[in-house]
Amino acid sequence: MNTNRRWIARGGATLFALALLYPLTALFARIGAWQWGEDIRGPALSSVRVSLLLTGCAMVIIVAIGTPVAAYIARCGTRERLFWQAILLVPILLPPLAMGILLTLAFGPYGAVGSWLEHFGILMTNSAPAFVSTQVYVGMGYYVLGAVAAFDAVPVMLQKQAALLGLTPLRVFLRVTLPLSRLGLAVALSIAWVRAIGEFGAVVVTAYYPSGMPVQLWVNLQSFGLPAVMPLLVVFLAVALPLPWLVHVLAQRRRHA
């Protein structure tokens, strides 16, 4: 690409980015002085802790379960793969509110699993497990579908060559498949993270408490109005963005290493 074309392409990408970020100009709207007093700051910081900690737990579960499932689906024949992909699309396609209602009914005290878990003292509504399980449900499909695509991109022949060099299937996965798919896995993980940490519709039904950042934004809007929403919005961007971005940075670095 010559220099002129590069600058034209860069200009186009800049316009695209500006359009994408345009809604953020509303942060400068005249809505009165932003409120960040103790009555707002305390619950807001608590919601940041809840969101980061519990979304982190959800990501660990998603990666631990989703990675082997994705590796299996990537090796399936066309028909079986389409079947699994249809199943993964269900939680993605459901409106978040509907997902929250279904989760509450299925895992709540009146559902079979919910009442069974309650025997062990695990409450599946308005609790940390409810929060985490909701995020797992909303984020899992995104991660697994992305991970399947990432595994698909690794040439099968390379994996067979590795096996013929004496590596067991697990070692082939760890030494060839996983390193060669890391960029795709990073993208899948960051999408799942963004989807989960920003989830409101499902979480507001299953886990109003402990409040994560999206629910706290809603509470602030209802209780104090827009001036109490904007600072939390800035905090949300500041804490939610770095982790998925860092994953991309690390994956790119190792790609070019």
């Binding site: 022949m157 390379l158 067979k160 060559q161 590795a162 096996a163 013929l164 004496g166 590596l167 067991t168 299937p169 082939v172 060839v176 060669l180």
Partner: peptide, 17 residues
């Protein structure tokens, strides 16, 4: 299983990692 086959296999694709 492939990993238990005592053989080397070379094709026109070098297949390097």
């Amino acid at each position: 299983p492939l990993h238990r086959r005592p053989l080397g296999y070379l094709t026109q694709e070098p297949g390097l990692f």
